[in-house]
Simulated scan of single mutants.
Amino acid sequence: MTAKHWSDANWQELEKKPLEIYMFVDPICPDCWALEPIIKKMIMEYGTYIRIKYVLKGGLSGLNKKVCLHSSSLTSQTDSKALDRENAPWKNSPITSPFIASIAIKAAELQGKKAGSRFLRTLQERLFLKEQDISEYEVLQICADEAKLDLDEFCQDIHSTSASKAFQCDLKISSEMEVESTPTLVFFNENIEDEGIKIEGVYPYEVYEQIIEEMVGDPIKDQLPTIDEFIEQFKIIASPELALIYNMSIHQAEKELKKRMLQQKVEQITMKNGTFWRILS
């Protein structure tokens, strides 16, 4: 599918990379979490050519089971009043907003795009691995600490106009680009006259790889880090994730991880949503 042309202002953010990929995500979307290993591999192999911009497309339904108190003031995702600091229901108690997880991600991004990505990944781990309620302010603080954010700054920014306006901007981008579901990736090249390529849902890695190769033209892949380096960077991994990134079977991935467990480099942990492997410090 194709997406609308994008404005000149957005292309100033390309940082001299030939591809800009807009990744539309919802922090509670399981498919967004499932796409993460593909994004990791894409960055590791084609990081020279691509820049990924996370755009939040948050829905109201299901984000916070506890917060019906202010539903009347949150009837529209794009209602500017609902996202204005003076009218925001989280102004005095951030726990009460169904937008809180998305606002928290934008607050984290105020400390840098990499900080925002780390926080999103930590948030998803808390939700999908530990099944914790990421609409609770205390859980968000723990995520910020684990993502190595400045905690005081994060706690201030989560209440700020800047974070709420950034989230509002993401919702506007989603609307303008006619993104209906998450995850959705939209690939743009350097020629702003060309339409973007929109991919909705999760597909095999080869699909995204083919798009990159066609849009860039015979890119040279970067070498993947060693398995030990990968584990060191991401701390907690699953066997299917390792298998996808290193083109091996899940059985082979488990053998590699069990070998490292015997070497006391990782430990096997069982969580509500399956078995994972965590680096030993």
Rank of each mutant, 00 (worst) to 15 (best):
I43Y: 05
E232A: 15
S174T: 11
H159K: 14
L129N: 15
I142A: 15
K57P: 02
N247W: 07
H159V: 04
F188K: 10
M248P: 13
A34Q: 08
K81C: 08
V179C: 02
E153I: 12
A243Y: 04
L280F: 12
K113Q: 12
D84T: 13
Y203M: 10
C155K: 15
L262K: 13
K148S: 15
L224S: 03
V25E: 03
P225H: 02
E13M: 06
T226A: 04
M271K: 13
I21D: 00
Y54C: 01
S93I: 10
I197V: 14
Y22C: 02
E256T: 00
I38N: 08
F230D: 01
G58Y: 06
S80H: 13
Q264Y: 04
K40Y: 04
S135P: 08
S160A: 09
I21H: 07
G274P: 02
G201W: 14
I39H: 07
F230W: 08
Q264D: 12
E206C: 06
D170R: 05
R121W: 02
K165E: 15
E200I: 14
I142H: 11
I197A: 08
S181A: 15
N273W: 01
P27N: 09
S93G: 01
E153S: 14
H70E: 10
P37H: 09
R118M: 10
L171W: 02
Q111Y: 04
M44A: 13
I279F: 09
K41S: 03
L149H: 08
I134K: 03
V207S: 09
W6Q: 05
A3L: 01
K91N: 07
I50M: 00
R121M: 07
A115I: 07
P37C: 06
L140Y: 06
L69R: 14
P240T: 04
G112A: 12
G112H: 05
A104F: 00
E178D: 11
G47L: 02
Y137E: 06
K221G: 01
L171D: 10
V25P: 05
L262Q: 13
E195I: 04
D194S: 10
